[in-house]
C-alpha cells in the first residue's frame, strides 16, 4: 500500500502585480491588480514505503509547493493527498510525529544556542524517550562526524556543519517519511558526499521513505532510483532514473579511438562534438547507434570505443527546456 499518494493536487496563488514608480504605488493603494499563478497543476503520483524518490524541476516548477502541501504547511486549491494515511493539511499531531521536512535554505535550530539545546527541545516536543533519544543522537552524530560540534553555538558553525545539525534535528524522532528540499544547496563537495552517505546509510538501516528535491544531479544519482520531473507545475515524467535517458536523451555519446588519424565523413553518422588526435566524440541518435557502429567498424580500424548516455545534467536541462517550450507554445 502506498505511503504517499497525491491525486490531482493543484495550487493556485493570487499574486499582487505591483506597478512601477511612485505614481504606480499610489494607484495601487486604490486599485490593485492580481494575477493567478498555477504553481502546481493536477499532479498525481504514489510512493511506496521505503522508496527514495527524486523530485526534479527547474526553479519555480512547483517542487517545493508540492512538498509543502504534502507536509501540510499549505492547503491545496484542489485535489487530494494522503501521507501515512493522513490528510496532511489537517496537521494531526500523530501525522506530524511521523514525518520530517528539511529545507536547505531555512534554519530551524536556535541560532544563538548550541545545537544540543535544540535537540533537547526536539526531545521534549516529540516526547522522545531518553534512551531512544541518546542512541539516535549518537548514531547520527557518528554518521555525520559532528559529535565534537554539538556544544558549539549554531551561529558559529559552517554552512555544511549547520546542515548536518539540521538533518540530525529532523531525524531525531525517527520519522517514517522524510521530505528533503535541496539539503545540499551551497555545500562543498565533501559536505555533499558526507550528507549523501549519511542519507543512504540511514535509509538502509531504517527503511525511511524519502522524497528529495535537488539541483545537484550527483545527489540524485547517488541516492534515488526513481525520479519525478515537474515543469511549470505539471508532472512530465515518473519513472526510473535510467529511463530518463531513454525517454529524453534522444542520442548516445560514442567515443572512438582510431589506430591512425580520425577519418573523414563521420558526420553522416551523427554530430561531431570533439576531435583530439585519433579520438573523436560523436553524438548519435539512440536508434541508429548499432547501424552507425557497424558501418564505422566495417570501414575503419578502431583501437577502442565506448558508448555512453549523456550526463544526467544535460538530459534534465533538456527536459526542463522542453517543458518551458511546451508551456510557451500553449
Amino acid at each position: 500500500m502506498a505511503i504517499i499518494e497525491a491525486d490531482g493536487l493543484s495550487k493556485t496563488y493570487r499574486v499582487f502585480q505591483k506597478r512601477e514608480g511612485v505614481l504606480g504605488a499610489l494607484r495601487g493603494l486604490f486599485h490593485r491588480e492580481y494575477k493567478e499563478v498555477r504553481a502546481v497543476d493536477r499532479v498525481s503520483f504514489t510512493i511506496e514505503p521505503g522508496e527514495m524518490v527524486a523530485f526534479l524541476g527547474p526553479n519555480g516548477a512547483g517542487k517545493t509547493t508540492t512538498l509543502k502541501m504534502l507536509s501540510g504547511l499549505i492547503d491545496p486549491s484542489s485535489g487530494s493527498a494522503s501521507v501515512l494515511g493522513f490528510t496532511p493539511w489537517k496537521r494531526d499531531d500523530a501525522f506530524r510525529r511521523r514525518f520530517a521536512l528539511v529545507m536547505g535554505q531555512k534554519n530551524q535550530l536556535w541560532w544563538d544556542l548550541p545545537a544540543s539545546d535544540s535537540f533537547m527541545l526536539h526531545k521534549e516536543i516529540y516526547s522522545i524517550p531518553e534512551a531512544q533519544f541518546q542512541s539516535t543522537l549518537d548514531e547520527l552524530t557518528e554518521l555525520l562526524e559532528v559529535k565534537h560540534l554539538t556544544r558549539q553555538a549554531v551561529r558559529e558553525l559552517s554552512l555544511g556543519e549547520r546542515m548536518k545539525m539540521e538533518l540530525i534535528a529532523a531525524l531525531l524522532h525517527q520519522p517514517s517519511v522524510l521530505l528533503l528540499d535541496e539539503p545540499t544547496i551551497g555545500l562543498d563537495v565533501v559536505a555533499q558526499v558526507r550528507i549523501q552517505n549519511c542519507l543512504r546509510e540511514y535509509h538502509k538501516r531504517r527503511g525511511v521513505t524519502v522524497i528529495l528535491t535537488s539541483h545537484y544531479m550527483r545527489d540524485v544519482e547517488a541516492l534515488c532510483d526513481r525520479v519525478l520531473v515537474i515543469t511549470r507545475g505539471k508532472l512530465v515524467y515518473d519513472g526510473l532514473l535510467s529511463g530518463i535517458h531513454d525517454r529524453f536523451a534522444g542520442m548516445k555519446l560514442v567515443r572512438l579511438e582510431f589506430f591512425e588519424s580520425v577519418p573523414e565523413g563521420l558526420e553522416r553518422y551523427g554530430e561531431i562534438s570533439r576531435i583530439e588526435g585519433p579520438v573523436v566524440d560523436l553524438k548519435v541518435d539512440r536508434d541508429r547507434v548499432a547501424e552507425a557502429l557497424g558501418a564505422i567498424l566495417d570501414g575503419h580500424a578502431v583501437a577502442d570505443l565506448s558508448v555512453q548516455d549523456p550526463p544526467l545534467e544535460q538530459v534534465i536541462a533538456r527536459v526542463f527546456e522542453e517543458g518551458r517550450s511546451d508551456h510557451e507554445a500553449a
Binding site: 501540510g72 531555512k106 530551524q108
Partner: peptide, 14 residues
C-alpha cells in the same frame, strides 16, 4: 520569511 513552516510542522499546538 516563511520560518513559520517549522512551527507548523511540530506536533504541538501552533
Amino acid at each position: 520569511t516563511g520560518d513559520l513552516d517549522f512551527i507548523l510542522l511540530k506536533p504541538m499546538d501552533e
